[in-house]
Design a protein around this nucleic acid. Sequence first.
DNA 1: CAAGAAGATTAGAACTATTCTAATCCTTGC
DNA 2: GCAAGGATTAGAATAGTTCTAATCTTCTTG
Lengths: 135, 135
Amino acid sequence: MAGNTPDFPDRLRAAGLRPTRQRVALARVLFEGGHRHVTAESLHAEVKATRMPVSLATVYNSLNQFRDAGLLREVVVAPGRSYFDTNTGHHHHFFVENDGELHDFPSEKVTIAGLPTPPKGTRLSRVDVIVRVRR
Amino acid sequence: MAGNTPDFPDRLRAAGLRPTRQRVALARVLFEGGHRHVTAESLHAEVKATRMPVSLATVYNSLNQFRDAGLLREVVVAPGRSYFDTNTGHHHHFFVENDGELHDFPSEKVTIAGLPTPPKGTRLSRVDVIVRVRR
DNA sequence: CAAGAAGATTAGAACTATTCTAATCCTTGC
DNA sequence: GCAAGGATTAGAATAGTTCTAATCTTCTTG
C-alpha cells in the first residue's frame, strides 16, 4: 500500500482511459486507500465533497468503464442494488440483508468442488459466491 | 410430479395466503409444470394469455408474497434483472451473460468448504452460487 | 504552443423495473 | 346473504440507470 506511488493518470492511461479531471478524481477516491465498496450515489457524494465538479452521469460512465477495464468488479446483491468493489482479486462476499452492508472475505480458504462444466458453447466467466446473513 | 394432485387454493391457504382468482391463476402457471424461472413481465404475459385478467402490480405483489411465504426463491443476476425460481430446494445457478438465460444445477455434487463464520450478531440466511458463463 | 479532431462531460430528459395510492372489488366468517 | 377486511386495479410515483445533444477537454500534429 505504501511503496507504490499511485500515479492515477498513468494508471488510467494504462487501462486505455484518458486521464480527465473527473476520472482522476474518481480514481483517487476509489483507489488511494484500502479496498472499498461503493455505489454510484455514494461515490458521487464523496467526489463532490472534494470540490471537484462531477455529474452523476459521469460517475455512472466511469464506473462502467473502470469495470470494463478490469479496475473494478460489480457485485449485484439485490434488485436495484449494485456495488462496485475495488478488490478485483479472487474473493467472495458477505451480504447483511438487513442493512445492505457488503463485506469481502478472502477466497483462499474457500474451496468449491463439483461444479458442473459450462453448457456447450460457453466458457466460464466467473463464479460468484454471496453468503447472505441476517441480524 | 404426477401423484400429488396440486390443489392450488389449498396450497395458497397453507402458505397463509387467500386463494383469490389471480393468485390461483399465477400459482397454476408457476407450479403445475416442472421448475421454472420467470420475471414479473414474463409471468404477467403468460397469465394474461390464459384470459384471466391480472394487473402487473398484482403479479409483483404475488411474487413478493410467494417468495416471502417460501414458495419461490428470488435470484438477482444483474442490475434490474430479477428472476423468481420455483425451485426452492438447495441448488445453484448458471447465468449466461450474453442472453440473460438462467439455468439450475443441483447442489448435490457441489461442496463448499472453508466458508468463514458469519459476523457477530448475524446468522446465515443463504449461500448463493452463481456460475457466470459467456458464449 | 495553436488549432483541429476526437473524446469526455453535463443537465436534464428518458427509460426500466418496481412500488405506492386510493378507489373498487372479492373472499371469508357469521 | 352480508358486512368487514383483505385483494386488485389503473395509473401515478419512485429509484436506479442510460441516453441526448450541446459544450468543454484532452491529445495530436505542425
